[in-house]
Computed example of a mutant assay.
Amino acid sequence: MNRAQIGAALRALRMASGKEAKAVARSALMSPSKLSKIENAKLAPSATDVERILTAIGVSDEVKAAYTEAARASATEATAWRLLKRIGVHKGQQAAKALETQMSTLRLFQPALVPGLLQTPEYIRAVLKRHNLSEDAVTRTINGRLERQAVLYDSTKSLQFVITEPVLRWRIIPPQMMAAQLDRIASISRLSHVDIRVVPLAVQQRDIANHAFVIRDDHMVTIETVHAEIVVTDPRDVGLYVGKFDGFAAVALSGDRMRGLLEDIRNDFLREQETP
């Protein structure tokens, strides 16, 4: 978890407890202003801050220990997936939802999988199989991701997605389900505030699709690696990712041309399904 995710999680836990901010701040031996800054990601909390806040809220020792460890890890702005799994993958969805509620512009580049905000329930389940989760954890995480997708229909936000063509062909679910997934992408692409582009394999490239990343309001970049999630906030580094995103967006298909490619790949999947 990064600073923003920890703050959003602390706020969600406090509100769920029914306790007012002033009461929690007093019990945590800090000013209401400091608590507000922590909850709104304007101040990075120490592990001690997090422990005191959660003690004031009244959470279990297990939850307290997990979030305290997350606070320590956030100092390096990198959180291992094993830590998120221990805390609860569905809680990661809650934190992401909080960030997406606050942002006004999202730019997402994905060379490996369909972006989470565009995934069907079947696709989400297939992705989660990699993490060896319990059925309860899988169900809660799927529900959490589907709840996050409500942001797609908030016309006050600008949502930009660039994915590579191999993403559309990667066989993570059966052909018929892949066809349905492509139908969903095509449908969402028709929303006026959503821009979905696909970098085709046929186009000569000058850059490399290293890994997935998300840019929020041009201030923060979240990078997904094999072992961890890394958050970048240095303006110089953020600028590098903005440039990389814009470069791929410039050579990607959009609008009807993009939907035409989706339809061709979708029809290939359906024909495969019909083959005896």
Rank of each mutant, 00 (worst) to 15 (best):
L13C: 12
H193C: 09
I215T: 05
P235E: 00
V251F: 02
G88C: 01
M30K: 11
R107W: 15
H131E: 12
A75Y: 04
I6P: 02
R169Q: 13
P235H: 04
P45C: 05
Y123G: 06
P166E: 07
Y123I: 12
R169T: 10
R190C: 05
P200V: 04
S254V: 07
L113D: 08
R3L: 05
S104K: 10
A12G: 07
T139V: 01
L128W: 04
S31A: 05
A56H: 00
S189N: 05
Q110F: 09
A252T: 01
A9Q: 11
V199W: 09
S27A: 15
K22D: 11
T156A: 15
G92P: 01
P276G: 06
R26A: 15
E263L: 15
G7F: 10
A9C: 03
A41D: 06
V231H: 04
L118R: 00
I6Y: 08
I6M: 03
N40R: 15
H211S: 15
P235D: 03
E69L: 15
T68V: 13
V242T: 09
V242H: 05
G116A: 07
M103P: 02
P115V: 07
K91E: 12
P174V: 05
K244T: 15
L35P: 04
A78S: 05
K97S: 15
Q102E: 12
D264E: 14
P200W: 08
Q5T: 13
S158P: 02
P45V: 09
V199H: 02
V194E: 07
L159D: 04
T105D: 01
L83G: 06
Q149M: 04
Q160G: 15
G239M: 02
L128S: 03
T164R: 10
H90E: 13
I215V: 10
R130C: 11
A249L: 14
Q149L: 10
S189R: 04
S31E: 00
Q149K: 07
D218Y: 13
I172V: 14
T105E: 03
Y67L: 15
A252F: 03
M258K: 09
L108S: 04
F109G: 01
T139G: 02
A96S: 03
M103Q: 00
Q102L: 12
K19C: 07
D246C: 04
L182Q: 01
V238T: 07
Y67M: 12
L13D: 00
M178C: 00
A47D: 11
A126H: 01
Q181K: 10
E229G: 08
H219S: 11
M258N: 00
L84W: 09
Q119S: 02
H131M: 13
G116N: 05
R82T: 14
P174F: 06
L113Q: 03
E272G: 04
A98W: 01
K91Y: 14
F109P: 01
A65H: 01
D154I: 12
I57Q: 00
P32Q: 11
V242L: 06
V194F: 10
